[in-house]
């Protein structure tokens, strides 16, 4: 069974190698999509042993994940796609645990959650509140029962990855994926994952203001469709 990790990276030259090396022991290949950044992310990713794709123009995280996923399906014959991060917030050693329910044929999608018992380290209170609000917002719109709607750690079976085509290029893709899981009647399960918040990742991460733009993208899609 071919497991491919897909990483969307934007200006991550200092962190990307760490993420790739962290994931590589647990997958057959890592695909990095450099989303039109200005630094040497692509070179660093290549040196660390990943397949490297470059967006010549920045298109957003959703678009980059879709590019990497399409490549993994079409060109690398992936059986399982794992969406992973570029900056060391996730743990590669948790990939087998995320893939297991798919390998057993129990579900099509495994979603990482920061709110299943353990595991969000150093998460600031404001971030926690914003994420909880995001969960409420998304659940009330899509009706899917999950504890964490905007966790970037997820595993998709080939079948699921083929059916989930991300069209929201920016940050609202996480909600779009949940909607597609419901719409396509895919079987899913949540697994607790460790997400580590460092000063560095917090400095560049999702601002609270950006949440508003994301909510706007989701509402637009909800009300006006494709």
């Amino acid at each position: 069974m071919k497991i491919i990790a897909v990483i969307a990276a934007y200006n991550e030259e200092s962190r990307i190698a760490g993420s790739i090396l962290d994931a590589l022991p647990y997958v057959d290949a890592v695909v990095v999509v450099d989303d039109g950044g200005r630094d040497k992310t692509a070179e660093a990713a290549h040196a660390a042993g990943a397949y490297v794709l470059r967006h010549i123009v920045n298109r957003g995280q959703g678009a980059a994940l879709q590019t990497g996923t399409t490549y993994a399906l079409q060109n690398l014959g992936a059986d399982v796609i794992v969406h992973f991060d570029a900056d060391g917030q996730m743990k590669g050693s948790e990939i087998p645990m995320m893939v297991e329910p798919i390998a057993n044929g129990e579900v099509d999608v495994v979603l990482g959650s920061r709110f299943l018992g353990k595991k969000a380290e150093n998460m600031p209170t404001l971030r926690r509140i914003m994420i909880r609000l995001g969960v409420l917002f998304t659940i009330s719109l899509s009706g899917i029962k999950v504890t964490d709607t905007h966790n970037g750690f997820r595993a998709l079976s080939r079948k699921a990855a083929e059916q989930i085509h991300i069209t929201l290029d920016r940050m609202a893709h996480a909600s779009e994926i949940l909607d597609l899981i419901t719409a396509k009647r895919l079987r899913y399960v949540e697994r607790p994952v460790t997400i580590f918040y460092s000063a560095e990742t917090l400095a560049k991460g999702q601002s609270t203001l950006k949440a508003v733009a994301t909510a706007k993208d989701i509402l637009k899609k909800k009300m006006f469709g494709e």
């Binding site: 692509a42 290549h46 397949y51 490297v52 794709l53 470059r54 967006h55 590019t67």
Partner: peptide, 9 residues
Amino acid sequence: AINQAQAPE
């Protein structure tokens, strides 16, 4: 991007 993908060494 897909067309010009670079495989690892």
